[in-house]
Design a protein around this nucleic acid. Structure first.
Lengths: 257, 257
DNA sequence: TAGAACAGCGAATAGTGTTCGGAGTAATCC
DNA sequence: GGATTACTCCGAACACTATTCGCTGTTCTA
């Protein structure tokens, strides 16, 4: 068990933001050309995270992978935090833009939620990056606009659209986190955990939990996710229908766009 | 920006679990009595987390607060991870047990969700601890059983009850995380962030986002949380009513207990 | 050709979790 | 009572981490 905090309150996010939005390093006016590009660095960092986990992503390892000294990395990127922000904005671009998906608003949200879920499950490090006060990069902003656009097809107010996006996003993050954490467990660790709990817990005192455990329901994260997603969308849909009123058109039937 | 991984795959969680479930240290058969209790250590750790954040919770600082050497701490607790697990199970006990709340199942869930939300907002470190594959301690198990008991008042199946608990829990965690992250931002940092984004982003390209931003909707986490909670509960309620069938009794009207 | 501006980086600083080995203490055994 | 044993406590060390300083060498400009 181990956790971490958001940014060490870096004094100024400006340099990181400039990197994020320009996407490349300015060519030096004097002196030798730069030996690396931002893309190379971001890719190397992602590869390290993929291989060893985000925790083991140290500046030294990234530098080593790139064949440069650690201190050189700091001439490209202001620090580890900025590098993580670059990774997030780069790989978030893989997610499809919700408003380009065909179908009703509901179908669009389903695709978006499942795509994010799948992405977070296959790249746990991305989930961690996405859930700690991200710097607003161009790809994240593009995605957010697209998500709002999906909900703009409904009669929801601006405030409600934002709330709906945050609701779905929060839900996907929260349940992906639960799934990823339990999937990331070491098998031996998990076995020892289960053995201990079985040996020490009086099952009669926790009958419902015991029933769920023996039924194998406690670890079925895929099913939990789908169940919850459906409930949330049902709830939003009911709210939309109420908002539109019985006379209003069903916005869900609008063509995609 | 900064994140962290779950456990460094400790070889064996057994010692930590024993501590969690016994709640106290065995009296030594030989040698001097122990100078500290588990409660003292957990309290000191929580105080450190409260003061400096979870990131700054180092074994050295906890030891210093207790007036002992660092190495001594390791004779009480197998490591930092175990200490964090103890903190979680200790402070989770503050949450009310859902099934003891008066009212319908829906009222019970609302209390539980809001209590957790409030608890996470006031203790950001608890949220982090709760969202990284927690060791199952006695208080966490008690809470989970209680949550299942709330849903056992409805005609949901066992699998659905678990899914509903996970849905609500996932949602609360996910949206609390978003709220906590943005609240924890340094004011100067945030100001620099906003200034940069305003100077660089072409608002016309992101009209919906711009509209939400100027309307002040992007940061209203409390409203987002309430909106989402209502939708989720609406969705669950509709599902329950469908399950019960038009002839079935409305489980929501059952007396508490 | 001198100087400015830069790239790259070795070494140092200040931290981290954890372990090792020894000193002191108290109960037990002979 | 004296020796043994099991224990607590902890200073120092190990192997890491992010970040910064100051130096070397390169390239462009005046």
């Amino acid at each position: 068990m181990d956790t971490e905090e958001p940014a060490k309150s870096e004094p100024d996010p400006t340099r990181a933001l400039e990197l994020l939005w320009s996407g490349r390093l300015p060519k030096p006016a004097r002196g030798p050309d730069r030996g690396l590009t931002l893309v190379q660095i971001t890719t190397a960092a992602a590869a390290t995270a993929e291989a060893d986990g985000l925790d083991a992503l140290s500046m030294r390892k990234v530098a080593a992978r790139l064949g440069v000294g650690v201190a050189s990395l700091y001439t490209y990127v202001p620090g580890r935090s900025a590098l993580l922000a670059l990774m997030l904005d780069t790989f978030i671009a893989d997610a499809p833009l919700p408003h380009t998906v065909p179908g009703t608003w509901r179908a669009q949200i389903e695709v978006w939620a499942r795509a994010d879920w799948a992405s977070f499950r296959s790249r746990p490090w991305l989930l961690r990056l996405a859930t700690v006060r991200p710097l607003l990069g161009p790809n994240l902003l593009r995605w957010y606009e697209s998500a709002l656009r999906v909900l703009a097809r409904t009669p929801l107010t601006t405030a409600e659209r934002v709330a709906a996006v945050e609701t779905i996003d929060g839900y996907v993050h929260g349940s992906a986190r639960a799934a990823v954490d339990s999937a990331g467990a070491d098998a031996a660790w998990e076995a020892a955990h289960v053995r201990f709990v079985n040996s020490v817990v009086d099952f009669d005192q926790y009958p419902l939990w015991a029933e769920a455990a023996v039924g194998g329901h406690l670890g079925d994260h895929e099913a939990h996710f789908e169940f919850g997603l459906r409930r949330i969308l049902d709830g939003i849909e009911a709210h939309i229908e109420r908002s539109a009123g019985p006379a209003g058109p069903d916005a869900a039937a609008d063509p995609a766009g």
